[in-house]
């Protein structure tokens, strides 16, 4: 093995695990090898933990610094970054918390915050407008596949973490953390550069998911029959579509 390889292996081992004794670094009178390597070890841990703090600010507030950073440090140890950009480093944090924490509301809060980071810098696209719809040939309606805006994300949540997130970020009194009897469907997206999220009824969530899977408008109408009678269903589908367009959830094709 080349000398440069040996040095880099040795050095990296020490940065990732400070108990590793480094062989290639020179001792000086003024500053010990341990102190010198300690600068790299600390910089590494604190930079990555800070990246998590940026991605999970409400989680951090909710847990308190001590508990949050303890978890960060063990995450850094278990999942060293393999990304070029530190922005993606925290993507496994919710799954990691699931293994570490009994409290599932914490895991859901983490998922919620990670999705917000995804929505924040997801790809741009023009949203479809009512004028676009009006200009469409009525004959294509049945086979029409609407394309969700690239910022759209979905999550089903059992805990009231959305309310918690809002209260912590707006610094209003926190709600009592509670679990609903059934998971609630949430949708996330970006409109005018600002992150949005909203809960949905069961039928709307089903319809959105169907659209995201590439179902045609006719197929979506058909599926909605589970909740609506045949004469109501067209109305419901039309009103959903209208509200999605108003919200900017559909891409212009």
């Amino acid at each position: 093995m080349s000398k440069l390889s040996l040095i880099q292996n040795d050095f990296q081992q020490c940065v990732l695990d400070s108990t590793h004794e480094i062989a290639h670094v020179m001792q000086t009178k003024k500053v010990s090898v341990e102190a010198r390597m300690g600068i790299y070890v600390n910089a590494y841990l604190s930079r990555l933990a800070e990246a998590l703090a940026v991605n999970y600010p409400v989680l951090k507030k909710q847990m308190g610094d001590e508990q949050f950073y303890d978890l960060c440090f063990s995450y850094v140890q278990q999942f060293p970054s393999e990304f070029r950009s530190i922005r993606w480093f925290g993507h496994q944090f919710p799954d990691f918390l699931k293994k570490e924490k009994e409290d599932f509301s914490i895991v859901e809060l983490a998922r919620f915050e990670w999705i917000l980071t995804e929505v924040f810098d997801a790809a741009d696209a023009d949203a479809m407008t009512m004028e676009d719809i009006a200009a469409m040939d009525p004959n294509v309606w049945a086979t029409m596949k609407f394309i969700p805006h690239p910022t759209v994300r979905r999550l089903n949540l059992k805990w009231n973490v959305a309310a918690l997130w809002r209260s912590v970020s707006e610094e209003t009194p926190c709600p009592v953390i509670e679990k609903s009897s059934k998971p609630i469907a949430w949708i996330f997206w970006r409109k005018d550069k600002v992150n949005q999220f909203s809960s949905m009824t069961e039928d709307e969530a089903w319809a959105i998911d169907a659209m995201m899977h590439g179902d045609t408008f006719a197929e979506i109408c058909e599926g909605l029959c589970e909740w609506f009678s045949e004469d109501e269903v067209a109305m419901r589908a039309a009103s959903l579509l209208k509200s999605w367009i108003a919200a900017g959830l559909i891409s212009r094709t």
Binding site: S2, K3, L4, S5, I7, Q8, N9, F11, Q12, V15, L16, H24, Y40, A43, Y44, R47, L48, A51, P80, S81, E82, F83, R84, I86, F89
Partner: peptide, 22 residues
């Protein structure tokens, strides 16, 4: 500098030995 080996990224600007090989 270098930032990591074996597919890992320390996200730090790590020092190099000043050698002919490097």
């Amino acid at each position: 500098c270098w930032t990591g080996v074996h597919g890992k990224n320390t996200h730090d600007l790590l020092p190099l030995p000043y050698t002919e090989e490097a």
